[in-house]
Structures are given as structure tokens and as C-alpha cells.
């Protein structure tokens, strides 16, 4: 896969410049715990109809910052963003909590340290 590193400031502009709705297909937003209370986010794109390795935009940032949303030009990203918010306890612009988890469930199950 082709990895492209982005920063918190230019993530939306980079993806917006890259993304062409008629050619690209937004796969998903993946997240991962990184050391030192950081989180690694990956926006994954592929192309329609041709054999090509997925393009991945990676961003590593602190857990407690507000992560910008890409839903203004990729409306279907709202599902992945809401899921990430639920699973990792991060905050993403415009994504509500409670897609999967209830109030009494284990909160941010993937964001916590494994015992």
C-alpha cells in the first residue's frame, strides 16, 4: 500500500485534493493505539475498476485533540468516524457517540491499555 503521512493541519486539504468522487472509493477510517498516549489514524482509499494498491493517509496525533472530519466531501465517512469515536474515545468533528456502545457498556474498548 502507498502510505502518505499527513499532519493534523493539512489532513483535510490533502485528502480533498486527492479525492475524486468518480474515481476513488473511500474504504474506511482505521485507528490504532500508538505509544505515549497517541493515536494513529489511517484513511484508506482505492480506485474503482482497476487493480491498484490502496492509498493510505496516516496521521499520528495526541488522543485528546479534536480531529477534523472529512464528511463534508465524503458523506459516507460518517459511519467510520462515529465508530472510531466509540471505539477509541477520541473526538472527531461532528461525530456523535453511541453508534454501538450504550451508557453502561465498556467505554472505548479498543482505546484502553490491554492487561
Amino acid at each position: 500500500m502507498n502510505k502518505i503521512d499527513v499532519s493534523l493541519e493539512n489532513v483535510v486539504e490533502t485528502i480533498k485534493a486527492f479525492y475524486d468522487p468518480a474515481a476513488h472509493h473511500f474504504l474506511t477510517l482505521n485507528a490504532l493505539r500508538a505509544p505515549e498516549d497517541q493515536i494513529e489514524l489511517e484513511w484508506i482509499f482505492t480506485r474503482y475498476g482497476v487493480i491498484e494498491e490502496p492509498t493510505v493517509f496516516t496521521l499520528t496525533c495526541k488522543r485528546d485533540v479534536l480531529i477534523p472530519s472529512v464528511t463534508s466531501f465524503i458523506p459516507s465517512a460518517i459511519m467510520s468516524e462515529r465508530e472510531t469515536v466509540d471505539m477509541f474515545g477520541v473526538s472527531i468533528e461532528g461525530a456523535k457517540r453511541g453508534l454501538y456502545l450504550d451508557d453502561d457498556s465498556l467505554q472505548m474498548p479498543l482505546g484502553r491499555c490491554r492487561v
Binding site: F26, L27, T28, N30, L32, P75, S76, I78, M79, S80
Partner: peptide, 15 residues
Amino acid sequence: ERVRIKTPTFSGIPA
């Protein structure tokens, strides 16, 4: 370390 599952209906729900 991580298994991410992206299922078809999941991304179809906004549509």
C-alpha cells in the same frame, strides 16, 4: 495488534 473489519453494509448505510 489490530484487526479492522470493514463490512459492506456498514459503508452502505448512508446511501
